[in-house]
């Protein structure tokens, strides 16, 4: 469904150097899988997501969605593509402050042409699944950060996207909620046969991912993060001890 072919992208850092954020990445994503992306802090991972979404064009290589080159799309078509096929979940999301949670979540469907009533009806089950249905009519400004994050997630998934791109989606959530969201994403990936690409620090994501990678020097390599003692898995069990396995791959 989504294919990156030898994609390269560089940008100029504040001190003038040219940084190769993405340097020859090839990746193919099929429906039903959840890919986790790790890597050092820096814009490399986000750049990869932007490329996958068609928000930026690669300097070299191609990004194909269903075989179509995203770089060739007009602004209009790109917007349409985002509207119908993609769902974004990211940390610095912003809701429309004067609207209620459910209206915010319904915006995307309405932009696609649904009436307000239909959109709200369609979005409610998602809100329930995310545990915020009881806050549905509250204004966005009255919600906590975690609740807003979940509204944004509901909105992102509302239009039934075929590809979900998530950048630190669990950043504002506590570990229990974070895990619920990850589990939800994994479940949806399978249920609705969609692809999910997840940029994260959280080692717990690897547990639900089909594949895990690390972006290192602009290139992808397979990666298995160390499970930390604090990690809580879905069964609620405990882990004790500090016996940490050494991570694969060489440190800088």
């Amino acid at each position: 469904m989504l294919e990156l072919r030898d994609v390269r992208k560089h940008f100029t850092a504040p001190d003038g150097d040219s940084v190769r954020a993405v340097d020859g990445v090839s990746l193919a994503l099929v429906p039903g899988e959840l890919v986790a992306l790790y890597g050092p802090s820096g814009s490399g991972k986000s750049t990869l997501l932007f490329l996958a979404a068609g928000l930026t064009r690669p300097d070299a290589g191609a990004v194909l969605f269903d075989g179509r080159d995203l770089a060739r799309l007009s602004r209009r078509d790109a917007a349409r593509h985002r509207l119908t096929e993609l769902g974004f979940i990211f940390q610095t999301f912003r809701l429309v402050p004067g609207l209620s949670a459910i209206d915010n979540a319904a915006l995307k469907l309405m932009a696609a042409g649904a009436s307000r009533r239909e959109a709200r009806r369609a979005v409610l089950p998602l809100l329930e699944r995310l545990g915020i249905a009881d806050r549905a009519e509250h204004r966005a400004t009255q919600l906590s950060v975690g609740e807003r994050q979940r509204v944004a997630i509901a909105g992102a998934l509302s239009n039934g996207p075929r590809l979900v791109l998530a950048d630190e989606p669990t950043g504002s959530l506590d570990s229990r909620r974070a895990h619920e969201v990850l589990a939800l994403l994994a479940a949806i990936a399978v249920e609705r046969d969609i692809g999910v690409a997840l940029v994260t620090h959280d080692p717990a994501a690897a547990a639900v991912a089909t594949r895990a990678f690390r972006l290192h020097d602009g290139r992808l390599e397979p990666f298995a993060p160390a499970p930390t003692p604090a990690a809580e898995d879905a069964t609620g069990g405990e882990r004790a001890g500090a016996g940490a396995r050494a991570p694969l791959g060489s440190p800088e």
Binding site: L55, R75, R76, A79, R80, H81, R82, L83, T84, L86, F88, L107, K108, A111, A112, G155, A156, N159
Partner: peptide
């Protein structure tokens, strides 16, 4: 909004 697919 634009990220979510609103057009210009």
């Amino acid at each position: 909004l634009k990220l979510n697919g609103f057009t210009d």
